[in-house]
Design a protein around this nucleic acid. Structure first.
Lengths: 122, 122
DNA sequence: TAATCATATTCATGGATTTGAATATGATTG
DNA sequence: CAATCATATTCAAATCCATGAATATGATTA
């Protein structure tokens, strides 16, 4: 009776995989940063106030899970979300918990082309 | 620069808490069983083919997280989902992964009043 | 090709999670 | 109150995960 597994739990693994990725404040914070398009690693560093290597670790997790993609532009590497459906998940949990997380440090910027452009024009 | 934590990661904890609960095939399977209303533990046992004490362990996790509630009716204890918003989260991930999980063993039944009623009437 | 820049990887350790096995609880019936 | 039923809890071992520290990579510039 115990050996006879009635339900095939395996199809759920793809789902638990995603949840596992999201079980991490820094990774959720990174995804939230990427809501408005691609950003470089140094930007996240300035924004989150976390060590570079630590952010890279979390980016690697997100990347290997297929949730984000990177693109090199000169010195910087820009990350973007692959499938915006991930935000449906995040939004659903925000609604469930009533814990919306606004932009934490909108003025933070780095020396990447994106931020430099914003600084000179704004 | 490293000591100065720019973002307050704490608000994200409520969200990661929920994700942590969902990082578990059996717990997701249980929640899916409860989609159509309350069910007793023996029903889940028959449905999932997992040991009773194991299911109780997972029910305890879900219960302590405030996601489900129990109600005793005679010998049986019936569980139900507290806030159906949890299914918005599950549905979002199902869409993201393309992994829909249908009813695995719809004929499974136990001796609880609910299942007995279905058997005699159907 | 050496220096520099942004970013990535590796590794070790402490801490958390999973899960099987055994046992406990508490309502119900006789 | 003893037996029985459905369900819950405890505990320990194995495994998994988070994170700091150190170091590596690989494009770019001089």
């Amino acid at each position: 009776m115990i050996e006879e597994q009635k339900i095939n739990i395996d199809p759920l693994d793809a789902q638990t995989q995603v949840f596992k990725i999201l079980t991490h404040p820094a990774r959720i914070a990174i995804l939230n940063i990427l809501r408005d398009g691609e950003h470089c690693v140094c930007h996240m560093e300035a924004y989150l106030g976390l060590r570079q290597s630590y952010i890279s670790q979390q980016l690697a997790v997100l990347r290997e899970a297929g949730l984000i993609q990177d693109r090199r532009d000169g010195w910087n590497i820009f990350y973007r979300v692959v499938n915006p459906d991930i935000y449906t998940v995040l939004d659903a949990v925000q609604k469930l918990t009533g814990q919306a997380v606004g932009p934490s440090n909108p003025v933070a910027s780095c020396n990447c082309p994106h931020c430099m452009a914003k600084q000179s024009s704004g």
